[in-house]
Amino acid sequence: MSIVFQRPHALIDKPLHYCPGCTHGIIHRLVAEVLDELGIEGTTVGVASVGCTYNSYEYFNCDMVQAAHGRAPAVATGIRRSLPDRTVFTYQGDGDLAAIGTAEIVHAATRGEKITTIFVNNAIYGMTSGQMAPTTLVGQVTTTTPFGRKPELHGYPVRVCELLSTLEGAVYVERVAVNNVQNIRKAKAAIKRAFQVQAAGLGFSIVEVLSICPTNWGMSPDKSLEWLRDNMIPHYPLGNFKNVALPGETPAADGSDK
């Protein structure tokens, strides 16, 4: 009998601490599967950030560095510049990346740092119990927008992929979701390509993953998946924003590299 499905080697065999229904577990698994498939677990250094995934170093089997809030892209820059033959990724949430760490992510992308960012957007601060994130949708109720996010008081939700895709150093930018099997498969393909782009030395790559937070959204996991589909995807359209030809691929004739 052959084994057709098992835990990726790059994912340590221990219980995850995430809340029931949280999709971080899926995203961890996708990253680990990609590390396995590309055979790069032993040559990869991951950077954990601050938020629910502060201790993702407990789960990934590659070397890991824990960074201060928002600083993961700067830490990753230091690592990658010191280890030019290694793969370096950051795993960051929306508060970490799109609020306190905005400068670090924008400038890592601007410099075209050869790192890969997995950006998990669940439209809320999870770890600190459900405050408004930069990505919280208009009208969304959080513990710091108890009457819903109002643009006149709280501004508008930021679209990170659209923002970063204007930068020349960011060569691969894609938004995916993990709300159904089809999208999960697309998410894995995007994560894999982001790592391949890094391996080819082409520049900065980021995959934004729309994710759910049943605990802080105050919904069941299945209702959360519906909420993601009905509310997040319309504001955060899925798809590729920027692509680049990998070695051996033919660039698109229109010059878009898509």
Binding site: A74, A76, T77, G78, S82, A103, H107, R111
Partner: peptide, 20 residues
């Protein structure tokens, strides 16, 4: 690397030192 801020610069040092 001319960093985007002192905050970023020290965190780059943190990363480089982590790498050994």
């Amino acid at each position: 690397v001319q960093a985007e801020s002192e905050v970023a610069a020290i965190n780059m040092v943190y990363g480089a030192a982590s790498a050994g």
